[in-house]
Design a protein around this nucleic acid. Structure first.
Lengths: 184, 184
DNA sequence: AATCATTTGGGACAATTGTCCTTTTTTTGT
DNA sequence: ACAAAAAAAGGACAATTGTCCCAAATGATT
């Protein structure tokens, strides 16, 4: 649930030293938006420190949190690979330090660097496993099952999530979350 | 919803000619299982003709259909990339003709062929877009919205799906599907 | 300490969905 | 054509979830 990718982090750490590539470090404060759903994007972020959330804002005003991202997670790469506008919003849940890779650099590496390709393939495959397992689980089990799983993960990661975010992660209302919490 | 990938199909078409690679063609009859959730897998399939469904079978006995796959779609690649047992079941909805790529060949290509890497990255990125958008939509909108969208897609693809599969795709019971159909 | 504003939790009712089981329709075999 | 079997549809009730709104708790300000 809190995704990390140490391999990607050390890969990018070493690329950072090569000044040719124009990779920089940037800070975002808590609650700022790194990517805004539907807008153009021209860089790729890799989280060095902190936690972000990726979420859809649906037309009916409801949020759905896809993932919580931490060390070594890439942001904006899907948009770059598929040449589309931002799929979802990405917001900083804590202060963030991120590597920023310019579009040109990322595309060049994609076209030439087998190591990047390998790491990305593994990351995307993993996300598919996660996202699809979760979709299935959330559709076919009760909210209480989903909540129990979420609390377990949260415990294990030692991470605290606001109730609003928990509800958005489960795809339910706050009211239902409160009820489910009682029921445990 | 009915995923295809013409680029992948022509790529594999040309690889097939190289006999060194040991890629073969195989037929599956309607309703047969290509991959069984939880079992080991040692090859990658690419659909040349026909339609398959990927679905989870949850412990409570319910099915959730992830995708309907057709021409040019890869099966088993995630398992190969992440070295895991089959994530879900894959069943033939129509008679199928598929290319079969041995594990060794696929891994070698992964390690050396930038073209394969590129095509796969684009395919996986696209699946993430699909799966996550759908998860969000299904969680945050009513069944009727989801059904309307499904019927629309089905119409557009000129594909017919059994009611049981429609329900499994929407993650609801047959009873609920029938009710929703009335409601339109 | 008192007041106001903001956040958090829950009551009441309506709407949605699941479960179970019966009824209706379709298919199959003779 | 008809009976038997199988598949599909729907009724009735229970459980779950959402909506709307109010009450309690918390926090900031004077």
């Amino acid at each position: 649930m809190l995704r990390t990718n140490t391999e990607f982090l050390s890969y990018i750490d070493s690329l950072y030293k090569d000044e040719q590539l124009g990779i920089s470090l940037q800070n975002f404060e808590k609650d700022s938006l790194l990517l805004r759903q539907g807008e153009k994007n021209h860089r790729v972020f890799v989280i060095k420190e902190g936690i972000a959330k990726c979420f859809f804002l649906e037309e009916n005003g409801k949020d759905y949190i896809l993932e919580f991202m931490s060390k070594g997670q890439v942001l904006g790469e899907i948009e770059m690979i598929r040449r589309i506008d931002c799929l979802c919003n990405v917001a900083a849940l804590t202060a963030l330090q991120v590597y920023v890779i310019p579009a040109a650099t990322f595309k060049e590496l994609l076209a030439k660097d087998l190591m990047l390709n390998k790491i990305l393939l593994e990351e995307l495959a993993d996300r598919i496993i996660n996202t699809s397992s979760r979709a299935s689980f959330q559709q076919l089990y009760t909210v209480e099952h989903g909540l129990a799983k979420l609390l377990e993960l949260q415990e294990k990661q030692g991470m605290e999530i606001s109730k609003e975010d928990m509800a958005a992660y489960l795809g339910i209302t706050l009211r239902s979350l409160n009820r489910a919490l009682k029921g445990l």
